[in-house]
């Protein structure tokens, strides 16, 4: 359990530093059990910071999301650090970004949160529909404790836990300047059961499955934009010349989009599950990403976002890489 008072105290200290521009953390959402990103630039604002199992967002995204406009003539660029709160999975996004040399380690200040799991907000809202007044979720042992409208309810952890947390290998951040709590030992592992189940199906079954999912896609690009690894300034999906995929929305172009999106994350996806969380039409995007994740681990013994010093998977090779598929 993160001590909120301690968190705020540390945050106050950090944001008061001259070399820190802003701190990205969490605050209470506008309704129900939601929490949302908070951007703190002033010590007076730290009291809104929270951390709870409702803090699902991966804030590493914001490190690379900010638009970098040309610095007006006569002004100096603002080189102050950005401080960011990360859970275990989120921290791997930072590691992977740094592995790809997206920015220097000195640019960021990392507040690590050893994490015992976050909720799946869809599951929460399905279980407790119609909660408007702000509620709270805390994890106590193997139970989530939900407080709302003066009521208090207990739910077994497994019922509301996000799927990604049931496979989490790195609950404690892999990179941090300060840890906000005691380290959490690994409490789960990944057996890729979901991926393997799909792999076993026939080609027709697989395509029938994906065709239905892809046909729903409305191409809002939330899965791309929320992804901490999708930080290209000029995305291949937006280019019109050459045009890799058309902007029209049909099964063919949607499939092309999802192939391109997933492939660009091959050996890069750190399994934060944000893409699937934000998809408004519930496309199981993690099942795509996890296929690559599994293959990359099996074929190349590589796990993205775990070693900032390692070369990125696809910009390196081993002479004895597998080639049994080659004629």
């Amino acid at each position: 359990m993160v001590d909120i008072e301690k968190l705020r105290e540390i945050a106050r200290e950090i944001i008061s530093r001259d070399d820190v521009r802003q701190l990205i953390g969490y605050r209470q959402g506008t309704y129900g059990f939601r929490a949302r990103p908070a951007f703190v630039t002033d010590p007076g604002e730290v009291d809104k910071l929270i951390f709870s199992p409702a803090c699902v967002n991966n804030l590493a995204t914001y490190i690379t999301l900010e638009e970098r406009l040309p610095v007006p003539r006569g002004q100096e660029p603002d080189l102050r650090k950005v401080a960011v709160m990360v859970k275990g999975c989120d921290s791997r996004a930072l590691v992977q970004q740094m592995e790809e040399k997206a920015y220097e380690r000195e640019r960021i200040l990392v507040l690590g949160i050893p994490c015992t799991g976050v909720v799946d907000m869809d599951k929460v809202e399905k279980r407790f529909p119609g909660v408007l007044a702000r509620g709270e979720i805390v994890l106590e042992g193997d139970k989530f404790l939900l407080t709302y409208d003066g009521k208090e309810e207990e739910v077994a952890k497994g019922e509301l836990l996000a799927d990604k947390c049931t496979r989490c290998r790195y609950p404690t951040p892999l990179v941090y300047d300060q840890l906000l709590d005691e380290e959490v030992a690994r409490f789960a592992d990944d057996d890729y059961a979901d991926v393997e189940a799909l792999e076993k199906r026939s080609a027709e079954e697989k395509w029938a499955y994906w065709e239905e999912k892809f046909s729903r896609c409305i191409r809002c690009y939330s899965c791309r934009n929320v992804c901490p690894m999708c930080y290209c300034e000029d995305c291949v999906l937006d280019r019109l010349n050459p045009q890799w995929m058309r902007r029209s929305v049909d099964v063919s172009e949607n499939t092309a989009y999802h192939i391109a999106r997933a492939y660009h994350l091959a050996g890069r996806c750190i399994q934060c599950g944000e893409c699937q969380r934000v998809c408004p039409v519930d496309i199981p995007l993690m099942e795509l990403n996890r296929k690559f994740y599994k293959d990359v681990e099996e074929l190349y013994d590589y796990e993205p976002g775990t070693n900032a010093e390692a070369p990125p998977l696809l910009s390196t090779f081993k002479v004895d890489d597998r080639e049994d598929f080659i004629m």
Binding site: F39, Y62, R219, C220, Y221, S222, N225, V226, P280
Partner: peptide
């Protein structure tokens, strides 16, 4: 600046809005 800080720049709010009507025109 404050209300847009968290915005991801995705199209959920507009594509799923029943009154949003903006469109692009493309040749194929």
């Amino acid at each position: 600046k404050k209300v847009s800080a968290a915005c991801l720049g995705c199209g959920i709010c507009t594509f799923l809005c029943p009154t949003c009507h903006c469109f692009d025109i493309q040749d194929e």
